[in-house]
Write a protein that binds this DNA or RNA. Sequence first.
RNA 1: GGGCCUAUAGUCGAAUGGUAAGACGUCUGCUUGACGUGCAGAAGACUCGGGGUUCGAUUCCUCGUGGGCCCACCA
Length: 789
Amino acid sequence: MAVCERYGKETEEKWQRWWEENRTYDYDENDASRPVYSIDTPPAFTSGALHMGHALSYSYFDFVARYKRMRGFNVYYPQGWDCQGFPTEVKVEQKYGRLPRDEFRKRCVEWTVEYIGKMRTQMKSLGFSADWRYEYRTMDPEYHKLVQLSLLQMHKTGQIYHSKHPVYWCPNCGSALAKTDTEDAERDTELHYVNFTLSGKPVLVATTRPELMHACVAVLYNPADARYSRLGAKTITTALGKEVPFLPDADADMEFGSGVVMVCTFGDKQDVVWMYKHKLPIIESMDGHGRITNSGSAGIDGLKVAEARKKLLEKFRADGKLVKTEKLHQSYKVHDRCKKPIEYQLSMQWFAKVTEKSEEIIANAKKIKWVPDFGIQYLIDWARYVEWDWVISRQRVFGTPLPFWLDKATGAAYPAEEAELPFDPDKTPKKAGKNGEELVAETSTCDCWVDSSITPLAIAKWGEDEKFFSRTYPSSLRPQGVEIVRTWAFYTIYRCCELTGIPPFREILLNGSVLAPDGKKMSKSLGNIIEPDKLIADYSADAVRQWAALSGAMAKDRPFSYQDMQYSKSFLTKMLNAAKLVEKSCAGFEGKAPDRKHLRVTDRWILSRLQKVKKEVEADFEGFQFHHATKTVQDFFWHEFCDYYLEYTKHRLYMPETYGQESRRAAQWVLRTVLLECAQILAPVTAHMSEEIWQSFHPGNSVHRSAWPSADDALLDEDAEKKCAFLNEVASLARQSKAERKLPLNAEIASADISCGFAITDIEEEMHATARVKVINFAEGEKSIKFAL
RNA sequence: GGGCCUAUAGUCGAAUGGUAAGACGUCUGCUUGACGUGCAGAAGACUCGGGGUUCGAUUCCUCGUGGGCCCACCA
């Protein structure tokens, strides 16, 4: 079998088909002889297309999977899909308009299935070696069941509870939002100074939200602020005449406004924090559509925020309580879809008790090896800063239903029975309770992180297959983006430890993200998006994979570089051409290792260097240093093997009658060995090209199933390296002399005066044959090389 | 405001306690018994600024400045 004439997409597709047909990447459930290496791959969000971030990070753990396979591990590498989320709902609604719940969900599923198809094709075209028999989707009933089971178990232990809590709310869309559905915006607004009454005297309170004053439940001052602390007052009367507590709080900013702040439920997030901290009552100041409620004597019920503010300010002005108004520049949160301001809305939600678990989560995170190690700091910072429990419910349709029943009369919540799983409120909307109560199914769905925080359990068949579980849990590796340490890693460690008592993975590998070539984020609005498909078509998948390896500054963001991509492609061409030469030179060679005495010093040199390269690359792969591993092989292959060694063998290959058959066979064996071992150690990265080369010598056997070629110390040869370093220098100077005189490289050099500290008898042949020096005058002594052309 | 990361030729970047790879680009040659998607050669860096440790720092520490990511705040 011969290597292909030209390398491209067709070659890669040929091998992708071959791997699939030959089940090259199957995990063997029944093989207990090999250690298992399980990878908790990120389930890709089903957005419809892979982006460069996917290409980078998914290449990363494909390198690991392939390396571990060659190291003899039984690699378990499933790929999942994170299906549910607001973006999908938005797109489906745009396409079909408003639909009944049931119908809507069906459309979401259809849409998602279609997009998974596209993305799976893209993954395959990048040569990812996932075992697709274990593909999973978070929208599948089986996955729902598992998530629900995990929630019931955590409900049993008291980790999950049902409670009223303020959440981000979009009055425009009438929906609760996740924090990630929000973005920051800026605006100019007005800061109003309104007089409250403290111990019979007026006290100015500055506020941007006077319309919420009826929901004022306390006024705070800084305990270090002598203006207020010395008064000893316990209550204060608002401009609406209501008496509320007057409390010290170090977070009250003495510098801002008049140094006192009114706490309303809810003007902003700080209000929520203070509400919990001081155990303040809650006044529901607004309904789900942003209309004021419970305003009492203020008389602004039913008004929208802007109208209410206007009306109330007029009233304060008339009462002489509005003292002054200043301009204020502020940032605020908007819903990322509709760009309208967000409010806080009190509602019944489901929670997980993360706040009390911070230290435990940190302790468990420390049992995991973080690569790079500073990554854990993101988690620690986050865990120590968690202010309230994790709201795990969302008022959405396309999501995992929460497995609970609600008493229609009292609102009390009851867990579903295990037999009722997968729990689906559309199929079983109500039932009678034990005491005849009318129970209705909870229709809220789970936050997407509830789904994804059990991936290590889901892929390990937790609660389903004990044997499978014991082999694949905890995952050997969790690869993920550094930007989701606070969510995916944090929630996974929390939930999996709660459920099993064992940290979910042994190592966590963090990658950064890909920036546009200009160093900015890739975004549609900037028009600087680069499509992986285009790169695969223009440069090949292996070029993209090499680019990913070379971009591998761990957990750091890097701009995309067409130069790297071009270099990667050139390197592939180089590999192919070198393979062609070796193949041609080895025609008829039976592949037997020569007797060591037939090896020339150049042979021993390149073999010695090969061992060192293998050692380095192996260490690099163990430490996930893909950049260094790739660079090391590329440099060795191109600039030592091709530029020097290949040239040193040509005369032996083409003129065996002059230089001897044994010398020729030795050269053939070395060429073949170096080529194939380079193909092997680069196989995790250049998966297709390595296979092309490997199978041209070993038809029917995948390089990805071959044993990793570890270094053989017996082949290390310092003497050969020293001599060849000198030989290379002579060769280089010879080329330089020819270049200076504008002579072709095959021009002859009449004579050379050479001296160095050792005999050159065993490298003279190459000086004659490769550097084309006719006469060599050698004298042992100080290093010196002079040519006479 | 907080945490973390980072600063090396025109560009991207590697490495090192003893003044620095490689790639791309530029310039000059070479037509080839694998490759012009190539080969050979050349030019191009006081390794962000200040201070410290050291015989010696680009490398370690510290301050500053710039850049990035994340988080918090914004009454």
